[in-house]
Design a protein around this nucleic acid. Structure first.
Lengths: 337, 337
DNA sequence: GAATTCTCTGTGAACGTTCACAGTGCGGCA
DNA sequence: TGCCGCACTGTGAACGTTCACAGAGAATTC
């Protein structure tokens, strides 16, 4: 791999070096079966010799494909980037796409300006597909995406669009059921819950699952709302303690909020789990570092990310439609319940 | 913005719709001063009418510019993606680049295969510049980068290459001095430290700063090593307690390790800060959620990211060289010291 | 032995831009 | 009046691929 430094080698250079034509080089490089073994070998050697790398710009000019996928973050940035789940998603998606030699472009769609940029980028045909993160049903971006008819897949369901945007997600509802049932089985009588934002599938479905086990009416007064942030978990816990001083368990819709709830419980002198059992959701890194360690519901996030990418690649490869996936969760018992 | 759906409008369509030539449209779009106001207006209108978006592939084919920057993560993925500092860097960099309409591509360079992919991508001319994250001096990628002569800037110094790869970084050494001095001023007599990996600027410089204040020889037996992970913080704290049971303060090289240290101290029955004062480094989100809350050193990470991006853009815009930046840190006192 | 298929190859055109060049009026200046 | 420079415009070529097409032998079939 000598550094010519002067000019990047083109397919012409490879053709010359291998003694075949442009067309044959192209075929050899793209795995066309109609290439003689002799030609194939010559091309391979010439590629190594010249250090040739295909020019994607030229290729996508004619193929209309870019080898690029955009990950769109529709949450206000601060929130999402601090979500420990996000890094898992990003890590796995990057790796999976790299394996297929697809580049991952990050874009944020927090405000209108951002959104316009994303749409402009996609409308320009600069990406083959879109990976949606935490999109809300009301997100104006969704309508635009549909107009562009570009393959799009969501990581986690998009509420209200489950039928139209394929997704892979954890079974939030069943996970919440597992936790609620576990608290019941522990003999807890007054079980409260702190929800995530109810316009997200996680927020909504975890509450649904909780109600499935305990009965909707029975828990009416035992519900407080948060927004997944630690701070909101603290506020909600305070509210619950004021309203229901004799509660003996609480199922919190995310580990981060649960960490906030734990702090408030300590501050108010309740022992965990003796006085109040606490259950979280996510099994993120923080669950192992709270005091006491958090009993929680593990989401198979890596698998969710892997499957989301798989669905997207299938769509890009021409599949007419793909089926969404819901993956099972698992109860992880530690110290807090 | 009607959806023709058939074919993406090209610059020819805009030319026809506005009654001027291709060349004039191109000039109007790229801010060439030699365009009449009439032509400019006509082009603007035609662009809005047709929903035209420039085709980057075609453009970069002729300009040799891509409007893309690669963020290369050279740490084994797991470690980096869990680093709370990483999300800040990513968030800010994405935003800053988007403001300049530059796309950010994420690439991981954990093993040789990854690295080969990155080099191939860059050698193919698919990006205008590289943003290095947590690169080590021994990283084989660095040598390859130099061979490619592509603009590259690091977020945090690259040990041993400070002169050759420009960077923006926090003043780790001075920050460590601030913390060490603070612990001394509290009247602590036996001050230990848990370092980060010494092949990173953070690990090395924070130890240096610590020694600056306390004297290299005096602290010889009071040093334990970690790798920034929570787990390593626990192990190092145990080691220190076994070796120096009467220590009364410890400066930990990262908040995450400090969280681990706090857990061990509690487990061993030491009160914080009464028996042992604990200082962290980073002021990451976790610092506010440990118990007790962590006294730490705040790194101006957002600024570091902003400046890193600025340096890279300057290089891409043709600057021959840029000066690296070292930004001041700040002591944040909470409960642990 | 001729016709037909099969494998492999080279060639020209096209993708959508930008850039350099060659204009065209028009006003100012000698 | 003639000339020059200025502001603006249009045109052809080039960037590096892929794709469709056509053609050349070799192998197979009738």
């Amino acid at each position: 791999m000598p550094v010519t430094n002067k000019r990047r080698p083109t397919i012409h250079d490879v053709a010359r070096a291998s003694g075949v034509s442009r067309g044959t080089v192209s075929r050899a490089l793209n795995g066309d079966p109609y290439v003689s073994t002799a030609a194939l070998a010559a091309v391979r050697r010439a590629v190594a010799e010249t250090g040739y790398v295909v020019n994607r710009a030229a290729r996508s000019l004619v193929t209309q494909r870019t080898g690029t996928v955009v990950m769109v973050l529709s949450e206000p940035q601060e929130k999402l980037f601090e979500d420990p789940n996000f890094s898992v998603l990003l890590r796995v998606a990057t790796r999976r796409l790299a394996q297929r030699d697809v580049a991952l472009v990050m874009m944020v769609a927090g405000d209108d300006g951002d959104r316009e940029r994303v749409v402009r980028y996609l409308r320009g045909g600069h990406a083959d597909g879109v990976l949606l993160l935490s999109a809300h049903s009301g997100d104006p971006l969704l309508a635009e995406l549909e107009g562009l008819s570009i393959p799009a897949v969501a990581c986690g369901a998009v509420l209200g669009r489950e039928g139209v945007i394929p997704y892979a997600a954890a079974d939030d509802r069943e996970g919440a059921r597992q936790m609620a049932q576990y608290l019941v089985d522990l003999g807890r009588k007054k079980i409260a819950t702190i929800t995530g934002p109810l316009d997200t599938p996680g927020g909504l479905n975890r509450l649904e699952g909780f109600c499935d086990v305990l009965g909707r009416k029975a828990v009416k007064k035992l519900i407080a709302h948060g927004d997944y942030s630690r701070h909101s978990g603290e506020a909600a816990m305070r509210e619950l303690l004021d309203r229901v001083p004799d509660l003996d368990a609480v199922f919190v819709g995310s580990d981060l909020m649960a960490a906030g709830a734990l702090a408030v419980l300590r501050e108010r002198g309740r022992r965990v789990p003796e006085d109040v059992a606490v259950g979280g959701f996510d099994d993120s890194a923080i669950a192992g570092s709270t005091h006491p360690k958090l009993t929680t519901v593990r989401q198979p996030l890596e698998q969710v990310a892997t499957e989301t990418v798989r669905l997207l690649l299938e769509l890009i490869d021409g599949a007419d439609a793909v089926e969404s996936l819901v993956l099972p969760t698992e109860l992880v018992t530690r110290e807090s319940a």
